[in-house]
Structures are given as C-alpha cells and as structure tokens.
C-alpha cells in the first residue's frame, strides 16, 4: 500500500468516481431497455389508466354531449389522489371524437355535468348523500371505497393481491342510460344487478 498524498486517512481501493458514474450511466441505459417488461405501477397511475379505459368502454346517451366535438369530462370529487397521473394519461387523447378533459370538482351540482365522476375515499362519510344528489344525472360514478356498488355506485376499485380490480353495478348504470360494454364486464371482478 503506497501513500501518494499526505492527507490523513488516505483512501485505499477506491475506484475513480468518473468510472463508477460511467458504470451507473450504462446501468441507466440498460434499465431503459428493460422498462417495457416491468409489470408494476403506482396504484393511482393504474387507476388513472382504468378511468381512461372506462371512457372507451362505456357509451353515454347522445344527449349528454352538447355536440359531437364536446369534451368528455372526467372529474374528481374529494381529495385528489392522482396528482398529475390522470392528466398525463388522458393528455391529447380522444374517445369517439371527444377530447378528454380532467377537472377537480367541489360542487355537487357541477358534478352532475361530468361524464365520469371519480369519488375519492375522502368522501366515504357522505357517500350516501352524494349518490343521492346525483340521481338522474348521466355521470358514471366510480368509487374507491368498500361497499360502493352496494350503495348504488356504478364502478368501484378494489385492491386484490396487490392488483387493481373493479366491481360493476350494471343496473345502476343502465338506469341512467349508460351502456357498459361486455368487454368491460368480462374483466370486472364482480358484476351486480
């Protein structure tokens, strides 16, 4: 062991930082290649992707759009768990000619004008009241709470084996004139009504 400088505690066996960072860079590039195979995602990143799919596999009555190019509105009621995920995933996307528009709503009257209404788990306590006040609106209600479809909600997210699954209350949707495609029903974990 040679000591080349007089600094106390001279470091032994240390690879040069440049070399190691170069190695890290290579690792980053290699990992980039592996990205597509990664079957894991953030919970709300996944739920955002599901909401986008609900827009594709649910048919709204024509009256719910003012014209053929009117946007399809996805709303979040309560504490927004998505961060930017929902906006990222719906950005520049269209479904049947309708642009997707994401907004946070506070007012239940405004919520009636949404096509998809995600009701966050922060609203669990007043869920009954919310569903009550939406009666007659043609919003697809999507919940994040146990017992949501039993209380009259239309689609509910559940976590099972660390995977996002959903339950569907077909009757509740049909009562509001929404048609849920058989494709969506076949993937649902549970269909009631």
């Amino acid at each position: 062991m040679r000591i080349l400088n007089s600094t106390p505690a001279t470091i032994k066996g240390m690879p040069s930082p440049r070399r190691v960072l170069w190695v890290m860079g290579v690792v980053v590039l290699l990992l980039s290649g592996a990205r597509a195979q990664s079957p894991t995602a953030g919970e709300y990143q996944l739920k955002a992707a599901f909401l986008f799919n609900f827009a594709k596999f649910v048919e709204w009555p024509p009256s719910s759009f003012s014209d053929a190019s009117a946007p399809l509105r996805i709303c979040v009621l309560g504490q927004d768990p998505f961060g930017e995920e929902l906006r990222n995933i719906t950005k520049d996307k269209t479904v049947n000619g309708h642009k997707l528009e994401v907004s946070q709503v506070l007012d239940l009257q405004v919520a009636r004008t949404c096509h998809i209404l995600f009701i966050a788990s922060s609203e669990t306590a007043r869920l009954k009241q919310i569903l009550e006040s939406l009666r007659g609106a043609d919003a697809l209600t999507v919940g994040d709470t146990k017992g949501f479809v039993e209380q009259g909600g239309m689609i509910n997210f559940v976590l099972e084996n660390n995977r996002v699954q959903f339950e569907v209350n077909r009757k509740a949707a049909e009562q509001c004139g929404l048609k849920i495609s058989s494709k969506l029903l076949s993937v649902a974990k549970l269909v009631v009504g």
Binding site: P39, A41, L46, A49, R163, V164, V187
Partner: peptide, 10 residues
C-alpha cells in the same frame, strides 16, 4: 384492460 388488471401495485 386485461393487462391493467394484472399489473402489481406499489
């Protein structure tokens, strides 16, 4: 949809 329902969550 099938792919989504098979993705694991953190």
């Amino acid at each position: 949809l099938e792919e989504l329902s098979n993705i694991q969550v953190y």
